[in-house]
Design a protein around this nucleic acid. Structure first.
Lengths: 165, 165
DNA sequence: TATTGTTATACTCTATAACTATA
DNA sequence: TATAGTTATAGAGTATAACAATA
């Protein structure tokens, strides 16, 4: 709505000295009020944090962990389902499953009711790694959401679920 | 929302026929309860939607629009500040500003108080494009958040702000 | 004829290091 | 010596099209 959102209290002539290390002053802008922008920043923080922890302890990225977690869910997803649910191209699923399969964490089984489809299931080793990954990603969530109360986290989960699905 | 959704004890022998087009059954998994995962899905939807609308009407991507919006804010950000605020490498800011500058939407001005720094400001044309982009991204937010009430959107904005900053 | 998985390819994005000009 | 911006480049991620096997 605002055509020029110049905040009256910050003159255009602010010097570099006043600006140094204060990019947070840009939080006043219209952009920083948009939910889409905030969601992008929040998920960037969360993904970066989870990637660091998963990589350090399990040599896994979040994408790989997501596939492993679904493979270990007991729901026997096909690659096509993984592609749809994770919003990834089928060819990307191939690469992710390849990596997990080479490490002995998942298996490809041909679906007996449709021999075109491959069902991805976790091995015993895969389930073990998934359990540790689950603990790690939950800890990561806790760290990133440290400023939120338990109630606020539940609110957030409910709201995001409405948007994601 | 699905038809007859399989309860928690979904047998491992679910057939492909029962599975066809129902990757939503994976919403039952632990993974789909994690806030980090939900945030990633929500922002993927939001970014994709905003990118389509911005590209169609203004031939801009969200990244470019973000820079343009901050340049038009009246706060005279330096490239370094844009880098910090948008969580992008300084070299990526160079490319983004190059594109906007070639289209006559922003200008690089040398900061008189520190000749190393470049202040990015929007031209008249840039401000006009930003205003249209602002309307487009707000409409995009509305579309993606259609299932949320005004109150819920404010809740979400407040929660995401706590996480993002 | 349509769909699943696969391969190949090109394109975009991201991360890193080195260089310049200023401080 | 340190910092802002720039360039170059390599790596990761993404998107597209074509193909074989199966439906």
């Amino acid at each position: 709505m605002a055509t020029t959102d110049t905040p009256t209290e910050t003159p255009a002539e602010a010097s570099t000295a006043e600006r140094a290390g204060h990019s947070e002053r840009l939080r006043q802008t219209d952009l920083a009020q948009q939910i889409q922008f905030l969601a992008a920043k929040a998920r960037a923080r969360g993904t970066a944090h989870a990637n660091r922890m998963l990589t350090a302890e399990l040599d896994l990225k979040v994408r790989q962990f997501s596939v492993l977690s679904l493979a270990a869910s007991g729901l026997n997803p096909t690659q096509r389902e993984l592609s749809q649910f994770l919003d990834l191209d089928p060819s990307q699923i191939v690469a992710l499953v390849d990596g997990l399969e080479q490490r002995g964490l998942v298996l490809r089984e041909t679906d007996p009711t449709d021999r075109r489809s491959r069902i991805i299931v976790a091995t015993d080793a895969g389930r073990s790694v998934r359990d540790r990954g689950q603990a790690i990603t939950e800890a990561s969530d806790d760290a990133v959401l440290a400023d939120l109360t338990a109630q606020e986290r539940e609110q957030l989960r409910a709201l995001l679920t409405k948007i994601a699905f």
